[in-house]
């Protein structure tokens, strides 16, 4: 029985030591990214049942840029078009003549841009659409034009105030290649994400489905629980200013941790506790 006890203790203690050592390693040295995200990018979970689960984790929201002939939406298709050469570069095989349309999902490195050119471009697009709708309404004040104008005004307000400003930029199989590509930009976040390629037989076009981030939730420790306990769940139909902002770092293993959380007008950091 003594040997079982020793082996059991060895398994439990060694595993925990390895896990915690990994956490320390991730947080050591220079962080891979450092951003301040708001409720626009880090939201309450959709179904937050405080009764059964007292832990709080925030969901990371990101978008893909809308296509040229597409409207801008808060929740985009999470799919991008790629060439065959890019597909092969990412480690996928081109579809064969049998064309089973089945390829494995793979973890790749994604670059996300925060509040940069892609967001500005989306904002301009929505503004332009709204201006066009406004002019159409001014020239012909009928019900459809009025409805269109109001819809686009709402979309514009959302884009300015509540939509996520985190946009997918690029994907690569190699972290170093991606990091060096964006080395001069401070608002780039490189994370791991799950991707799956598709092939459209009709258009003969490859596309890459950006399924999900490997780490899509960020846990909040008890030190900041009071901030969130006083907040109600976000009304997704309304357009509301973000109620908090979170200072984050991503480490060597691309795993994030929270430095501080600001509630509007108040600053509470871990170091000040």
């Amino acid at each position: 029985m003594k040997k079982y006890l020793l082996i059991g203790l060895f398994i439990i203690l060694t595993t925990n030591m390895i896990v915690l050592a990994g956490v320390v390693f991730n947080r050591s040295g220079e962080p891979s990214s450092e951003l301040t995200l708001t409720e626009r990018e880090l939201s309450f979970p959709y179904s937050y049942d405080k009764g059964e689960n007292s832990g709080i984790s925030l969901n990371l929201h990101w978008r893909t840029p809308s296509k040229k002939n597409e409207d801008s939406y808060a929740y985009s298709s999470k799919e991008i078009e790629i060439s065959q050469s890019k597909l092969v570069e990412l480690g996928f095989e081109p579809f064969n003549s049998e064309n089973k349309f089945w390829s494995e999902s793979q973890t790749l490195f994604w670059a996300l841009e925060f509040d940069g050119n892609l967001y500005e471009s989306e904002l301009r697009k929505v503004q332009l659409n709204y201006q066009t709708a406004l002019k159409e309404y001014e020239s012909l004040s009928n019900k459809p034009n009025k409805h269109k104008k109001e819809k686009l005004k709402t979309r514009l307000d959302r884009e300015k105030i509540s939509n996520s400003r985190l946009f997918f930029v690029d994907v690569a199989a190699d972290y170093e290649a991606l990091a060096s590509q964006f080395s001069d930009q401070k608002n780039i976040l490189i994370v791991k994400g799950l991707t799956k390629p598709y092939f459209n037989k009709k258009t003969k076009q490859y596309s890459l489905l950006l399924r999900q981030l490997v780490i899509k939730k960020i846990m909040i420790s008890v030190e900041y629980a009071n901030i969130f306990n006083s907040l109600s769940q976000k009304d997704w139909s309304g357009i509301k200013e973000p109620r908090y902002k979170v200072d984050l770092k991503w480490g060597k293993r691309l795993e994030p941790w929270v430095l501080s959380i600001n509630k509007m007008g108040k600053h509470i950091s871990e170091n000040q506790k």
Partner: peptide, 28 residues
Amino acid sequence: NLSMLGQIFNITPSPNAFVIWAAFSFLL
């Protein structure tokens, strides 16, 4: 223990947890 540590520290999920759980289960 392992799944909660993963959530608390936002650790990348890994299949190696299953072999550790298997080892512990075999022991028990």
